[in-house]
Amino acid sequence: MWPPKGNHMGLPLQRKIMEQIIFYILAAATVIATVFSITERHAVHAIVYLVTSFFALAVIFYLLGAPLVAVFEVIIYAGAIMVLFMFVIMMLDLGHPEKVGTPGIRDWWPALVLAGVVFAAIVTIVAAATGSPAAGQAIGVREFALVLFQRYGVAIEIISMQLLFALVGALYLGRRQGKGEKP
């Protein structure tokens, strides 16, 4: 049945347990893949890890009753944006990692502290929350398009310009100018 109706209350117990198991596997996959994409020094490998993480995230969205967001996650993030990253890396010839040691604990502690703060905040919020999550209404293409083009029409245009010129700027700054090399 597609899209899955989000009302989990009426589901048989077995299926509920099954969904929970899948959710935890996917969540672990997302976190682990993201961690690897940060620690990996080779840019292309890091991108492959990031794509893995996006795929796992997409299935989580699907489980939560947002099939459209899941498809977007795959098409836009894992597809278009990652291809764009690869494209820029190839264009600027950044695929060769320099021989630098992995960062030690001293470089990591600010990130660890921040991650700890965020984690503590999430735990507090989750612990204080009452009632069931809002998941349940599957948002279709129609509702999404209405909001996108009626409410945020001008915002979409601005974002497209911004992406274009971010790319122009990145290409401009990243292009190396050697002595004998034509720009």
């Binding site: 001008v154 915002a155 601005i158 911004q162 010129f165 700027g169 700054l173």
Partner: peptide, 26 residues
């Protein structure tokens, strides 16, 4: 007149300015 528009305008401005500030790339 929408926080979203103001924020996106600011980002459009900032992204261009980051490049302009570093424009002498040598």
């Amino acid at each position: 007149t929408d926080l979203m528009t103001i924020f996106l305008g600011l980002e459009l401005l900032s992204v261009s300015l980051y490049v302009l500030a570093g424009f002498q790339r040598d």
